[in-house]
Design a protein around this nucleic acid. Structure first.
Length: 355
DNA sequence: AAGGCGGGGAG
DNA sequence: CTCCCAGCCTT
């Protein structure tokens, strides 16, 4: 698109936005730090789900320096329950990157912003347009949907050609004079008006220009080709008690819940009864030499459903009479101190029920 | 290009 | 149930 053809879309879109926008705490600021935190929290996360996290996070970490100086464990604690924990770890890494490489000042150059850990094309465009009014178009899930419908495009949004096409389209359509307002507007339209299912097109400010409304394919767009395969996993947790203490460990490796804490874990390839579990190599190694362990409660079983995993979890409360030898790598803490450690939602739910 | 990464809400 | 949310990183 060239010239001012895009005014046809910009005028009604921005007008609609100014009349319908939600009042959100990260709007009405141009502080790149505030915008950065809000954008990362909102990655793959609904506004309503991230609001409280944002407020708590900003109170504890009001600026880059405070975040950079904190321990990763504490940052994770503030992220507990929100999911996609790499966001919190990357946030922490990037804060230190800003201290080390940019003198503690949030970078203004798009390439520099993009170089920060955890900031991709979307978030870089959001920060640069909202904080500095630079003309970068955001392309998030909302924008894909609005543009696919507006121009009746069935190229899959999760394909390489699709991504290129939508970035080009979004950039052409962008209001270069007010990129901040425009970017907010098109995302808000996707969030409130051009919703995935059953949009009220008769109320849409762009309905008279929407090609998919004419073709009748609104509900079929956008097209996505990827299909997520949900794989089951089996986590057997041993909640061991000894003199009021228990054992936990920080998860390591590139796996779910990296760097969060959890009880003694034996993962199996299928469902195991407690009887079968006791005969596994792992179990015997942990309780080496300890004949007597007492299971004091019925095992709590929970199906923890995620977008790409089903965690079949079994929690066994176990009382012991002497300290097992096979718990190296685990730390021994009073049960009451568990709340100080960042744990997964699954573990948190168990702890709540246990009270 | 494809897979992994969380959790929750809407229909 | 299915879909998807102000995505990014790794392989």
């Amino acid at each position: 698109m060239s010239g001012m053809e895009n005014m046809e879309f910009i005028v009604p879109l921005e007008k609609w936005y100014l009349e319908n926008k939600r009042d959100l705490p990260w709007r009405n600021t141009t502080d790149p730090y505030v915008i950065w935190i809000s954008e990362v929290i909102l990655q793959q996360t609904r506004v309503i789900q991230g609001l409280d996290y944002f407020n708590r996070f900003m109170t504890r970490f009001p600026d880059v320096a405070s975040l950079a100086e904190a321990e990763e464990d504490e940052v994770l604690k503030y992220w507990q329950g929100l999911g996609y924990y790499s966001r919190a770890r990357n946030l922490h890494t990037a804060a230190r990157q800003i201290m080390d490489d940019f003198g503690g000042l949030f970078p203004k150059n798009y390439r520099d912003v993009l170089s920060l850990k955890g900031i991709g094309e979307y978030t870089a465009a959001a920060i640069c347009s909202f904080a500095y009014r630079q003309p970068y178009a955001v392309v998030d899930g909302n924008v894909y949907r609005v543009l696919a419908r507006l121009f009746d495009i069935d190229v899959p949004i999760d394909s390489t050609p699709g991504k290129k096409l939508f970035v080009k389209l979004a950039s052409d359509l962008l209001d270069k004079k007010r990129p901040d307002v425009y970017n907010q507007a098109i995302m808000e339209l996707g969030a409130l008006q051009c919703v995935p299912r059953s949009p009220h097109c008769e109320l849409c400010p762009l309905s008279d220009k929407c090609l998919s409304l004419i073709s009748g394919r609104v509900e079929k767009l956008p097209v996505k080709q990827g299909k997520t395969v949900v794989k089951p996993r089996f986590f057997n947790y041993l909640c061991i008690s000894y003199q009021g203490d228990t054992w936990i460990r920080q998860r390591k490796g590139k796996d779910i819940w990296e760097n969060l804490y959890e009880f003694v874990l034996i993962e199996t390839d299928k469902e195991y009864s407690f009887e079968e579990l006791q005969h596994t190599e792992e179990y015997c190694r942990i309780f080496n030499g300890l004949g007597k362990v007492k299971v004091t409660a019925l095992p709590l079983q929970k199906r923890h459903v995620l977008s790409h995993r089903i965690i079949n979890a079994y929690f066994y409360s176990i009382e012991i009479e002497s300290v097992p030898e096979g718990l190296s790598g685990y730390i021994r803490i009073p049960y009451t101190e568990l709340e100080n450690y960042a744990v997964s939602r699954l573990t948190h739910i168990y702890l709540e029920q246990r009270k």
